[in-house]
């Protein structure tokens, strides 16, 4: 029954499988030289630990703990800012999913729907600005013509229709934010028609360049910004897209 030095070492380190360990233990019991060798291994381990363990007993320098504490603070700041960013993102996504009427304050939404009902009552007539097509509202008549031809970049502001901005939405359709004295909305060119994506009653028309913050128009512009794939079209782009009948 022989025991290699490697086996003895593994035995001393507790690394032998049980069966081998039992065999080595029996050999050690029968052989004083092996027992001596094992005792020397154990003394060596004790000597090394006796040499180094006191270091682990020393108080840890403040600098090390301070480094870790600083990292903890940094982590906490990150967690806070991540949570804030997430909350912002989520609220953004939610409002993006809501039907357009809910995007504005409930009071305004009710007022707007009342006016919209009145407006549609009078306007959903043959020859009016709004028509129904397969259950969706599309621009017709003068509104459709204006959406097709009028440039946001070149208008006096005195005509019945104003184009506030033109943009391309995610998915590629071209859309325009408009206002025609009684209603304002966003229309997108789809399959040859100007689909009315959002419509609100605009009430009294505001004259001049200045657009009041919080007005229905600014809400529409905010909605348009959410829909847009990039920046609004500039004068040259608008002209170019118009010449292709606002096709994708």
């Amino acid at each position: 029954m022989s025991v290699t030095p490697e086996e003895l070492m593994a035995y001393a380190d507790g690394e032998l499988p049980a069966a081998d360990a039992a065999r080595v233990a029996a050999a050690i019991a029968a052989d004083p030289a092996l027992a001596q060798r094992l005792a020397a291994e154990r003394r060596l381990r004790e000597a090394l630990q006796g040499h180094l363990n006191p270091v682990a007993e020393e108080p840890v320098p403040d600098a090390l703990a301070a480094m870790i504490a600083a990292a903890v603070q940094e982590d906490e700041r990150k967690v806070v800012s991540l949570a804030a960013a997430r909350a912002e993102r989520e609220s953004g996504t939610e409002s993006g999913k809501r039907p357009f009427m809910q995007r504005w304050g409930s009071g305004m939404a009710i007022a707007a729907s009342l006016v919209l009902g009145l407006m549609l009552g009078t306007q959903l007539q043959p020859g009016g600005p709004v028509a129904e097509k397969n259950g969706a509202l599309v621009a017709s008549g003068r509104l459709a013509k204006g959406l097709e031809n009028q440039l946001a970049s070149a208008q006096g502001g005195n005509g019945p229709l104003r184009i506030l901005v033109s943009f391309q939405r995610k998915g590629g359709d071209y859309c325009r934010v408009f206002e025609n004295g009684t209603a304002a909305g966003i229309a997108c060119k789809e399959d040859g028609d100007w689909m009315l994506e959002r419509v609100i009653a605009s009430g009294q028309r505001q004259t001049g360049e200045y657009r009041q913050a919080g007005s229905p128009e600014s809400a529409l512009l905010a909605a348009a910004q959410d829909m847009a794939a990039g920046d609004p079209l500039d004068a040259a782009a608008e002209k170019a897209v118009r010449s292709k009948a606002w096709g994708k």
Binding site: L52, N53, V55, A56, E57, E58, V60, L64, A65, I68
Partner: peptide
């Protein structure tokens, strides 16, 4: 932090 004494050793 709990590892520091061992790391120093």
């Amino acid at each position: 932090t709990a590892l520091l004494p061992r790391l120093r050793r």
